[in-house]
């Protein structure tokens, strides 16, 4: 009987999202109750802030085309890790030498620690992510085109 009732509620797809949201809300409460969680101090890819650097907060050292040491999970799998971190495009090098604003725009230029993580050491994540974007876009484009007929 109870299973029948549950399946009747579940079979109405309008109830699915409220149920799932309710489950998430309950788990959020559980998370709040379990709270003081430890912070593991010895993290990978630690953040350093170098005050006064034009590349602040992304100054990880190293002139272009040299290697810097970064702390990654499996150094033996990425033999060239560190080159991308140190690389600056000619335009961004010009900005870094002449202005104080390079650090705020470094994520827009090729090179830097974020590109190192995104493209090189954790490249598979970033391959899956444009695939999700690609699939969503394909769905949207298909539904859009279908309205033509």
């Amino acid at each position: 009987m109870i299973i029948q009732k549950i399946s009747r509620v579940l079979s109405n797809y309008d109830n699915i999202l409220p149920l799932f949201a309710g489950a998430c809300a309950i788990l959020a409460v559980v998370a709040l109750l379990s709270l003081p969680l430890p912070y593991f101090e010895d993290q990978l890819y630690p953040k350093q802030i170098v005050p006064g650097s034009t590349l602040n907060p992304y100054d990880r050292g190293g002139p272009p085309f040299t290697r810097v040491d970064i702390r990654l999970q499996y150094p033996e799998n990425s033999p060239t890790a560190g080159y991308v971190t140190a690389y600056l495009t000619p335009f961004s090098l010009f900005l870094a030498r002449n202005t104080m604003y390079m650090g705020t725009t470094i994520v827009a230029h090729p090179g830097g620690i974020l590109d190192e993580i995104l493209y090189n050491t954790r490249g598979l994540d970033t391959v899956v992510e444009p695939t999700i974007l690609f699939i969503s876009f394909a769905i949207a484009a298909y539904i859009f085109h279908r309205r033509e007929d």
Partner: peptide, 15 residues
């Protein structure tokens, strides 16, 4: 990898 797993699972969901 835990984060990679979550991304793949999201991809399964959208597919």
């Amino acid at each position: 990898d835990v984060f990679d797993f979550t991304l793949f699972v999201s991809l399964v969901g959208i597919c």
